[in-house]
Amino acid sequence: MLLALLLTYAGFTALCLSMPRHHDELLSRKSSTRRRQGLKLAGWFLLGLSLWAAVSANGWSFGLVDWFAVLMLSALALVLLLPYRPRFALALAGVSLLASPVAAWAQC
């Protein structure tokens, strides 16, 4: 479940950065159309990968329930962090991407 949580948070952060307003606020520069599309694709890919991680860990019945739980938890964390600690939200996404191979190794 940790792997799904890490991938979901990183996916939501990528989807957040694909919006021009959040991209300008967090990275202090304008985003190109190509970068926005790449971030959007990466975000959806990470969300799909998190679904696979949750289902492979617990099967379809409990895996989907776990996946929806980590979806809500990571979205809540991102929504609460963005207004108050935007740089920390971005750093947490980077840490979650770096920690996901370790979580994948631990899940096997």
Score class of each variant (00 low, 15 high):
F45D: 05
S50Y: 01
V95K: 00
L47P: 14
L46G: 00
S100A: 03
K40F: 15
L46V: 00
T8D: 02
V55R: 01
G63W: 03
V55M: 03
F45R: 03
P20I: 02
M72L: 13
L26R: 02
Q37W: 13
M1Q: 10
A91P: 08
L82E: 06
K30P: 13
A53H: 00
G38R: 02
W105G: 01
W52F: 11
S32Y: 10
A99E: 13
F68D: 12
A106T: 13
L26C: 06
L27R: 12
A75N: 09
P101W: 06
F12C: 05
G59S: 04
L5G: 07
K40W: 12
W52I: 04
A89T: 05
L39I: 01
V65N: 01
Y9M: 03
S18I: 06
G59V: 03
L76P: 09
A69G: 14
L2S: 07
S50N: 03
Q37P: 00
S18A: 14
A104K: 12
A69K: 08
R87D: 14
H22R: 11
S61L: 14
K40L: 15
W44C: 08
S18W: 11
L2M: 10
L64P: 10
A99T: 12
R21W: 07
A14W: 02
S61I: 12
G11V: 01
A106D: 08
L26P: 13
L71Y: 06
W67K: 00
R29N: 09
C108T: 09
V102Y: 14
K30V: 05
L46T: 01
G43I: 02
W67D: 12
L49N: 07
A77V: 15
L80S: 11
W67Y: 15
R87C: 00
F88V: 11
Y9T: 06
A53I: 04
S28C: 03
S50E: 05
